[in-house]
Every structure is written in structure tokens, then in C-alpha cells.
Simulated assay, not measured.
Amino acid sequence: MPSSTRRLLTALAAVAALAPAPAAATPSPSPATGRDVTVLPPLPVRLGEGKPCTAPSERTATGSTWAAPALGLTRAQRLARGAGVTVAVVDSGVAPDTPGLAGRITDARKDCLGHGSFAASLIAAKPGKDSGVTGVAPDATILALPGTDAQGVPSENLVAAGIRSAADRGADVIYTGAALPTGRVELTSAVSYATGKGALVVAPAAPDALPERDGGLRDAPPPSGPYWPAAAPGALSVVDFGPSGARPSGAPPAYRPDLAAPGDAMVGSGPGGTGHYIASGSSLAAAGAAGAAALVRARHPGLTPAQVAGRLLRTAYPADVPRLDPYAALTLSVATGSEQDTATLAELPAQAPEPAENGPRSTALAVSGVCLTVVLLLGAMAVVVPRGRARRWTPPGVG
């Protein structure tokens, strides 16, 4: 069975571990597995005028999420955890009491919507005492910068200013939660500026939801993109997929994504409290990819932003849109010549080390090789020694 298939099956089985602790909560079928799990509160995509801020969740997911085994985080985090890397979160803010991020948020601020806190937890949260939910890079530092207004509505000016500020303040990776149909000039310039400062910008290739019209669902055809800043040269554009391996039906179309990552039925922290929310969208896939970029920067600190993006792309699982594989990005040897520093989807030669679980097999092969060598040496000696003795150890023709 291919490793990608095994990992997908493992991911599907892992969704059952999301059951929160409170026994009194009402169970309902999980869309991913059909099993009964307690439903977490959904994180809103936007807050309407006059709506209160997102309330703390009272429900906690006790197990790990489906995305953790899908990304191979257990193995990847043995090699790197993002220590020494700063990931800027240009979004609705990151609340100072976001679970799993204590002491690692710079410029923490009120997050009325909760999206920025949720994304930051997917990037860098440590698992809690009663929960296995973890971020991709749990030792990374978060730099919180505004990319939306108080209601969670982004604008090209706010996002561009946030990207530039993050670059000026030394961010290694810059995550933005916005996918904007406008702002090409401002956001292309901001991404170029950040790249020149040594920061990789990671952004969603599609919005999380289509806008509503007159209180109802949008009735016009969905926009086909491009979306900014993801479409800007130098940015890493990411689209989501779910536990089934596909995007949910009705999801906004993505515009030329570079990479796919888990982004549907995601579980993360919110602003305040110790509970969790559930949410879906390409912005959450981009958060996971930003965390993976932080792992690469921690393990390979000398790489340029283009080389980090290229490593993530060249080591991804082959698919219509290559799928993020943090462990492979940390371990595979890939060419990094100047002509290959751009983030493209070209296939490049790679040499993979033996996985950790193949240790016994590798040891057995090594012992077998040594034994074979000894046998060959003994056979050679059985031929050479008698002839040497017959000649009294002199070369042919001498004496």
C-alpha cells in the first residue's frame, strides 16, 4: 500500500480522537467519519455590524486532530520544532491568552473575531495538559500584526502594511489569512519587500467563504481569482483539503495554488478560555504551511525564502496540487543551485534517508553485508594460503 494511502487512512481514523471532554454535550455525526463525536463550536468567518466578539469555547478536544498524522508531525517534530523562528500572523490579531502560546506572542492584542488566534494556534501552539491538539511548529514565536478591522474584515492596505512591518521586525515567515480580489499593486510590492528582507510570505489561494448578498447566499458566479497576496511573485500560495483527501463541495475556487495542506475540519484555539473551535478554509491550510516553513527555517537556517518554498514544493506528495509533507521537507536532499532557487513545481532529484521505523531492517542488511564480506575473505584465504605455502611465499618465477 503506498505511503500516501496509509497516511490518509491513518488520518481518517484519527478524526475520532477529536471528542471533547464534557459528557453533557450533544453528540452528532462527524462529517469526516460518520462516528458520533461531540461537535465543537464553529469559528465565524466574519462578524457582522453590531455583533459581539467571539465567545470563548467551553469544549475541549482531548485527542490529536486528523491533520497531525496526515502531516507526519510526530516524526517531523523530532527533527525541528521551530525554535528560534518568528512567524508573523497578519490577521485579526492574536489574543494574549491564546492556549498553547503563553510567553511566545509578541504584540498580542484583542482578537474580536478569533481567526488570528486560531491560525496562530495551528502554526505554533503546544498541546495542553488535557489535549493533544498541537501546532506544526510548537516552539516558534508569534508576531501578531493587524490585517483586518475590528470585525475581521481585511483590506489590501492593512495586509500590505502588516507584511512590511513584519519584514522590518525580522520575521522569518509571514502568514496572512486574507485572500483579496483586489490590491495587486500594493500586495505585490509588499511581498517583494518582505522577500528582500529574508521573509517567506505564505497566503491562501482562495477565500474561506464566498461573500453573502442581502442576507442570503451569493447568487453570482464565484470569482475565479487571482487572489492577493497569494498571487504575488515570491508568495507561497496554499489551498485546503479535508480528511477525505478532497476539498468540500461548494468551496470557493482556488487560483493557481502552489501547495495543498490540511485545512478542513481543523481544530484550534480561540481568543480566551481553554476550549477549541472547528473551522475550514484555505487560510487554515496556509497556517499549516507557514508552520512547516518555520520547521524548515529552524533546521536549515541558511536557506533563502525561495529555497524554503522550493524545498516545501519539491518534497511534497505528487498530486494535482502537491501536498505538504513536513518530514520530507526536513530530511530530503534537494538541489539548491541558483537556477533552481525559484519556487516551482518542477520535479528535482531527491535522496531520502531510511525512515526511522526501518531501523531494524537497515541493521539486518548491514549485518548481512558484513557476514558476506567475511565469508568471501575466508574463501579467498583458502585458495591463496596453500599456494603461498607451496611457493614458500615467493612470487612466481623467483627462486
Rank of each mutant, 00 (worst) to 15 (best):
V239Q: 10
T274S: 14
S244M: 06
L303P: 06
L312V: 01
R314E: 11
S280M: 14
A261N: 04
A285M: 00
G291T: 07
S280N: 10
P322T: 08
P253Y: 08
R299E: 11
R256Q: 14
A232G: 06
V238Q: 06
A265L: 14
L259I: 07
G234L: 13
P262M: 08
P229Y: 05
V267Y: 03
D325L: 00
P252Q: 08
G291N: 07
A260D: 03
G263Q: 12
S283V: 00
A298G: 03
D264F: 09
G272N: 05
A287S: 08
A251E: 12
P262V: 00
P301Y: 07
G245P: 13
Y317S: 01
V296P: 03
G310L: 00
D325A: 15
D258Y: 02
P257R: 15
P233L: 08
Q307V: 08
P257N: 08
R311D: 02
P322Q: 13
L313N: 11
M266E: 12
L259G: 10
V239Y: 01
A235I: 00
A289D: 14
D320I: 15
A230S: 15
R247S: 06
V238H: 07
P233K: 09
W228P: 03
A294K: 09
L295S: 06
G268Q: 04
R256W: 03
R256T: 12
G288K: 04
A265T: 00
A294W: 04
L324M: 11
A254I: 05
D320E: 12
G310F: 01
L284G: 04
D264A: 13
A292D: 11
A289F: 11
L295E: 08
P226W: 06
G273I: 02
P262Y: 12
L324F: 06
D264G: 06
G245S: 10
S269Y: 11
L259C: 01
G245C: 03
G272R: 00
M266Q: 11
P248Q: 12
S224N: 13
T274Q: 15
G281I: 09
V308G: 09
P318K: 14
G270I: 05
H300R: 11
S249M: 11
A254K: 11
G245E: 02
G263K: 05
S244H: 15
L295H: 06
A230L: 03
V238W: 07
Y277R: 13
V238M: 14
R247H: 07
R299Y: 13
T315H: 13
Y255C: 09
A231I: 00
R297S: 01
A294M: 10
R297Q: 13
Y277F: 15
G268P: 07
L312E: 02
R256M: 04
P257I: 07
